[in-house]
Nucleic acid binder design. Structure first.
Lengths: 338, 338
DNA sequence: CTGAAAGCGCTTACAG
DNA sequence: CTGAAAGCGCTTACAG
């Protein structure tokens, strides 16, 4: 079956394409009778407007693009869900792309989205992204851009984030208040902002509580395999410090769970021998043994917020509105591991 | 910055739009010199073709739609990843929609995708979908359609599935060989095919091994909250059967983990008192305590396969090619819970 | 209340 | 080798 066009409806009804178009869109200057006829026939023929034609004409696509490092990740999956949900309410569709932590793929995805003519783009950057020309390109094309979670500080645009430093600070301070003194940190790659900020929060909590910062308690997890990174770092940690470490603050739940698994399998009791705090509150952390203390990061709500911010910029097209940075609230979820 | 068009390039170079278009696409009938000029200027101006115009003209969008019940689900996230990966290789973009197990949303998503003019659609149906008119509509619009995982048996189209019945059969037979005799089953909703098939496999394994099928050992999990469904059913199971049940085959890992959590919290030893087998091999099942025996369902590979099948149909446009049903291999992953 | 016409940006069959 | 022209399906300013 060939797609039905306005022209076919017009011919069948012996009226003009113009009138059909206007009738379908409830223009006030079309008679009730004509509207009724047109709508009925359109319905009967299962008419669906050709989106490419509409887009070309109206210069908007009702489509937005999202780029995330990966879809197989509880936090990102939750954000995506929130974005799609909020977008659907405004009749927007979402093109999803993944960078797989690869800068080239991220750049290519941006180009594809621009050429697609999406009305806006949302990105959570790859860990490797250090050059932000592709973000400038988006801005140069006058396409609204919102960064979320993995952002670039130096790019001027709207952003949705959490206060990573503060969240990390609170987590580590909680450990200190509980009496832990030798607190290790499994951090992420050196480059991403969240990794830097969580580390800074960790360090600041130590200093403000008169605990000496010991760099040998900090391990870098940067192999893009959080579970095994956490597992391997836990082994190194114990090999090096033995009993001279009593707590661990891990950059993500997955890293924490890798470590937790190592401790469990090697007779190291949690939290008696070592306490653990993760980051993100993945579902998994509530069912693991022991359940994991972690920082709740409201992904679904973040997704909705990201879309709202983008939508605001889309609507304000041609009017310059100030960029906003929205900070989502996090909270420490205390469970058995501390 | 307004987007650059062919016309602007043509004017700057004092040649025709036609020639610019052909030069950019390396038509053989354009001189090397002109091609070089055009390409250089296009590059300099950061020319990106207007996709809507191209789509309108070529009647294809290089875009495909995917509808899944939810993105926050390890298996679906994995399939999505595979689809996006395979699609990108062929320069296809993926519009992602979620039905949230709601038929209305599924239907609306289909309409949106059709109107968008996507070149093909892939769907994993919601649990509630019992009427398949919207799938027929896709076919009537001559849009290639591939169903995966949650399929409709009566819809005539290409499909990618696993052999749910066989996989379930093997899991239950494995329990029987291990000596378990009172094997419960936590099944899904009555409607979805996977739920039916896994139940049938369970039942058949019992019968073929001379174990009486006891309907009171079968519980239905249909509240769209697998963890709590599993947890609640586990309580009911124990309340009703006490020690007179020694194994559980759950329809998904999440249901299994809900039950596992209940057993763990109530002093019921796994696998001594009760063995558990899940379904899907979510990452979580390898780190839970005890680790979960389950059936591995190759989501990533399935995603790639779904796209390949769809792509074949897109390429064969206007030529009728036979529908295919591809069955992905599953395997039993034996861990501590059995 | 209705419709002819222009135009969105591209591709391509055709003429020269 | 180059380009004028048609046309994809729609929307909308304008005329009547």
């Amino acid at each position: 079956m060939k797609a039905i066009t306005l022209k076919q409806i017009a011919e069948e009804l012996n009226i003009s394409v113009t009138t059909v178009s206007k009738a379908l869109k409830d223009y006030p200057d079309v008679s009730k009778k004509t509207k009724k006829q047109v709508k009925e026939l359109a319905k009967k023929l299962n008419y669906i407007p050709n989106a490419s034609a509409v887009n070309l004409r109206t210069q908007q696509t009702k489509t937005i693009g999202v780029i995330v490092p990966t879809t197989v990740h509880h936090f990102f999956a939750t954000v995506i869900k929130g974005i799609i949900k909020a977008a659907k309410k405004k009749d927007y569709m979402v093109i999803l792309m993944q960078s797989e932590e690869d800068v080239e793929q991220e750049i290519k995805s941006v180009d594809l989205l621009i050429s697609k003519g999406v009305d806006g783009i949302m990105i959570s950057l790859s860990n490797k992204t250090q050059n932000f020309d592709h973000l400038e390109k988006i801005k140069n094309h006058d396409i609204p851009l919102v960064l979320f979670d993995k952002i670039s500080k130096i790019t001027d645009c709207s952003k949705v984030v959490i206060n990573d430093q503060k969240a990390a600070y609170e987590a580590v301070e909680y450990l200190i208040k509980k009496g832990y003194k030798r607190i290790a940190h499994f951090r992420g790659d050196l480059n991403p902002q969240v990794s830097i900020d969580r580390f800074l929060g960790y360090k600041k909590a130590l200093l403000n509580n008169n605990i000496e910062f010991d760099p040998s308690l900090v391990y870098i997890c940067n192999n893009n395999d959080d579970f095994n990174d956490g597992h391997a770092s836990a082994k190194k940690l114990i090999d090096m410090h033995g009993k001279n470490v009593d707590a661990l603050f891990a950059i993500t739940d997955m890293v924490a769970i890798g470590a937790l698994k190592y401790f469990n399998d090697n007779g190291i009791k949690i939290p008696k021998d070592i306490a653990i705090i993760g980051f993100s509150n993945w579902f998994m952390s509530s069912v693991i043994t022991p359940t994991l203390t972690t920082i709740d990061q409201p992904g679904y709500k973040m997704g909705k917020t990201v879309f709202k911010l983008l939508y605001k910029e889309i609507k304000a097209k041609n009017v310059d509105i100030p960029y906003e940075t929205i900070e989502m609230k996090t909270s420490l979820v205390i469970r058995e591991s501390t």
